[in-house]
Structures are given as structure tokens and as C-alpha cells.
Simulated scan of single mutants.
Amino acid sequence: MSGPTLDGSTLDLASLQGRIVVVNVWGSWCAPCRREIPDLQRGHEAYQDKGVSFVGIDTRDDAAQAKSFIASSRVTYPNLVDDGSGSLVAKLVGIVPLQAVPATVIVDRTGKVAWKASKPIDYATLADGLDAVLAETPGN
């Protein structure tokens, strides 16, 4: 999965190979997404030194509103932009329902989906999922 980010760069998730990756599908128009984003940012800050990367996928959104939301929420992890066609979110078919926003997936170091939620999450839920994945990872 690769594409443009809200900050204008390009991100290819293949560059994160060997890391645990948290992927969160969101939209600035989505009230539950707006509520969970501080917990995701907190998770990013707490787990980045443990080999965990966070990536957002902004979907069905207005670019200016999405950028403003990310800036005001002080989100520091990269956010891919689904171009409106649903092409990025479609890559999650069979993992989470396509219309599930928010949705969060944790991919282990081998590239397998290790945990998922098709609903809003809080920091405790995210930490429980990450701790379980980290505990199953050799070398931790």
C-alpha cells in the first residue's frame, strides 16, 4: 500500500517492513474518529521506540479539512490520503468492512494482521492490542 500523504510526501508501507504497524482509517467528518485521534497519537508516542509505526488513512474527506484537523490535533505520524476512489481502503477488504470508519488494524512484523477493530478505540484498548502483539514477537 502506498500513496500521497496529507503533508505532500509519498509513503510506501513496504518501507515499514519488519516493524509492527498500526493502520487507522479515519475522516475529519467522523465524530468517533475525532474522539479517538488523541489516543492514537498517544499510542504513537508511547510505542514508537518499541518498533511500532503508525499510519493513518484519511478517507472520503476534504483535503483542507483533513489537514486542519491533523494540525490542530498535533498528529505527528504520516497519514495517507485515499483519493476518493476508495483505492487505499479497498486494500483492507476482508480485514475490515469498507464502510467502517474508524477502523484500526495492527500488522505484525511478518506482515500478518494481528489485531483489528471496526469501531472507535481508546488508548487502553490500543495498548492492550499492541502489548499482545509485542509479547508474541520474538526478541521482545
Score class of each variant (00 low, 15 high):
Gly43Asp: 07
Asn140Ile: 05
Val25Ala: 10
Pro120Ser: 14
Asp131Thr: 02
Thr125Ser: 11
Lys119Gln: 15
Gly8Phe: 03
Gln65Asp: 11
Gly129Ser: 07
Ala135Tyr: 03
Phe69Cys: 06
Val93Gln: 15
Gln41Met: 09
Met1Gln: 10
Ala114Thr: 09
Pro120Glu: 15
Ser73Pro: 07
Val22Thr: 09
Leu80Phe: 04
Arg35Thr: 13
Ser73Phe: 00
Asp131Ser: 07
Pro120Leu: 11
Val22Ile: 12
His44Gln: 12
Leu130His: 06
Gly18Gln: 12
Glu36Arg: 08
Asp61Gln: 02
Ser118Pro: 11
Lys119Val: 13
Asp49Met: 00
Ser2Trp: 04
Ala90Phe: 11
Thr76Asp: 07
Thr59Tyr: 00
Ser15Glu: 08
Thr59Cys: 03
Asn24Arg: 05
Met1His: 09
Gly56Pro: 01
Asn79Pro: 03
Ile57Tyr: 00
Asp108His: 06
Leu126Thr: 10
Ser53Val: 07
Lys119Ala: 15
Tyr47Gly: 02
Ile95Tyr: 10
Arg109Ser: 03
Val22Tyr: 02
Lys50Phe: 07
Thr76Asn: 08
Asp58Leu: 00
Pro78Ile: 04
Gly3Thr: 05
Met1Ile: 12
Thr5Phe: 00
Ile106Trp: 01
Gln65Pro: 01
Ser72Thr: 14
Ser53Gln: 10
Ser87Phe: 05
Lys91Thr: 15
Val93Leu: 14
Pro38Ala: 10
Lys50Thr: 08
Tyr47Ile: 09
Ser85Trp: 02
Ser53Phe: 00
Pro78His: 03
Ala66Pro: 10
Ile121Cys: 11
Asp39Thr: 04
Ser15Cys: 08
Asp82Asn: 14
Val22Leu: 15
Leu130Gln: 05
Asp12Ser: 15
Arg42Thr: 11
Pro97His: 10
Arg74Glu: 05
Arg42Ser: 02
Gly94Asp: 10
Val75Trp: 00
Leu88Glu: 13
Val105Met: 12
Ile95Thr: 14
Cys30Gly: 06
Pro138Leu: 10
Gly139Val: 10
Ser53Tyr: 01
Thr59Ser: 12
Ala71Ile: 10
Asp131Met: 06
Gly3Pro: 14
Ala135Cys: 07
Thr104Trp: 02
Asp108Leu: 11
Ser28Cys: 06
Ser53Met: 02
Val93Tyr: 13
Thr10Ser: 14
Lys50Ser: 06
Arg19Ile: 00
Gln65Leu: 09
Ser118His: 10
Ala90Thr: 12
Ala135Asp: 09
Ile95Val: 15
Asp108Val: 12
Leu13Ile: 05
Gly86Leu: 08
Leu40Cys: 05
Thr5Lys: 01
Thr10Cys: 01
Arg60Gln: 13
Pro78Cys: 03
Trp26Leu: 10
Thr76Ser: 15
Gly56Ser: 00
Leu6Ile: 02
Val89Pro: 09
Pro38Thr: 01
Thr137His: 02
Gly139Phe: 10
Val101Trp: 03
Val107His: 12
Gly51Asn: 02
Tyr47Gln: 05
Leu134Ala: 07
Ser9His: 06
Leu130Asn: 07
Ala132Tyr: 06
Gly129Cys: 02
Phe54His: 04
Gln65Ser: 14
Arg34Ala: 09
Ile121Pro: 07
Gly27Glu: 05
Ala100Tyr: 12
